[in-house]
Design a binder for these strands. Sequence first.
DNA 1: ATCCTTAGTTGAGGCAGATCAATGTTGAAG
DNA 2: CTTCAACATTGATCTGCCTCAACTAAGGAT
Lengths: 244, 244
Amino acid sequence: MLPAHRSAFARKLGAFVALSDEELSTLGRLQGRSKSFAAGHDMLHQGQVDQHAYVLESGWACSYKLLPSGGRQIVDFQIPGDFLGLRSVLFRIADHNIEPVTRVKASEILVSDLLAIFSKTPRLATAVLWAASRDEAMVVEHLVCIGRRNALERTAHYLLEFGARLKLVGLGTTAGYDCPLSQYMLADALGLSAVHVNRVLRQLREEGLLTFQNGRVTFDNFDGLVTLAEFDKAYLDHDGPLLK
Amino acid sequence: MLPAHRSAFARKLGAFVALSDEELSTLGRLQGRSKSFAAGHDMLHQGQVDQHAYVLESGWACSYKLLPSGGRQIVDFQIPGDFLGLRSVLFRIADHNIEPVTRVKASEILVSDLLAIFSKTPRLATAVLWAASRDEAMVVEHLVCIGRRNALERTAHYLLEFGARLKLVGLGTTAGYDCPLSQYMLADALGLSAVHVNRVLRQLREEGLLTFQNGRVTFDNFDGLVTLAEFDKAYLDHDGPLLK
DNA sequence: ATCCTTAGTTGAGGCAGATCAATGTTGAAG
DNA sequence: CTTCAACATTGATCTGCCTCAACTAAGGAT
């Protein structure tokens, strides 16, 4: 097991690319000063230019888009170790909003530092590109979920994904994890109504698959869930470092 | 207007970052030998490792995922100037399939060349990162479409997006464009059934908004479509180069 | 203590879009 | 010239999920 003092970011990257002590310290220097954000107040708005990127240290956040007609679609949730707003920085303009779900701590990343890494420490560059690609892979998987899975499968898949992601940074086990999301947020992420999310969660509970209650997700029948959701975690962790 | 001999790739990047002749020639050297692929035969399969990335020169392709239960979700279509399989290369393993929609010509890209660009010509690096971010922005927009727009808005939005993308590489106008997609493919992309896509296309035609027939999309009422779909093309082109 | 807000729960009814089924149309292959 | 396959079109029926509505539970503020 990795040492507990290692940051969630280092822990996540280390799961993909085995990093030396020197690379780890370079990674540490990449993360600038740490900021704190209150739950419910957007850290980033659509249309903002030249913003900072962050690495999330603690708490949960979500990125979402609003439609002029009023609807909202949550694109992804971010947990400790994840990038915040990386795409907005590369794209120069934010095309989405980011809202902290809980109180959040995040450390700034300077793009110049990030680009410098690409020429100086190629292994770290590989790791960072892997992380960015993984973020995109998650969005793709969400697209597939919403497009081709029904409400039950979709919900199970999403909650399993959180489980796998949290386990990778030491915040969850196969038994379950703490989950600060309301059913309304889950609905906005799943493309469902909050009412239907409630019914789906009840069904999952009554069928002995999982319990979502009091800010905690408990897997009652992990294998049953994986079968139901056709969940394949390959897109999240590759079962260990690809580059030794 | 840009010179006609400029590749679709250079034309697209040039719409974002104004490129010098030297940068353009560096870009040209990045593209290796050209390959041709027949329609309907996958160029890339889920699970393949260490594949090449390509830049699409001519024809259309699509990237999709298959569910064990049989469904398929098309994540995006690629048109000339777009990357093919870039994420699979960075991610080291393909998490999706790529199928040529028509006969396709594509030129190989070596990752080593790509990474070399990052240290040597930072403006090109910016352009490439922009292109990759834009690809991700499109997936995000598709997610929003499927999650929160109804079939009519969704279809209109998708066909407007093609229009804007094709115009950027000189393959379409505000009047319309050639579109080789079958209604079945459109259905797999929109998360709808082919039957319903047919009905929606009929409705769009009968309401005088657009005509999708004989491999051609004609905008009959462009502004009406934009209003219906709440289409904002900012995520595709930024209305011209951001970096002069 | 009481109010008010936010989140969760449950029922009833409606509709967008799926599914099933049949037919027309076009183009390629023999 | 015929056959076959893929695509397009249309009708009929069904259902998963939405919407509306009412009620409960748990905090926080005053």
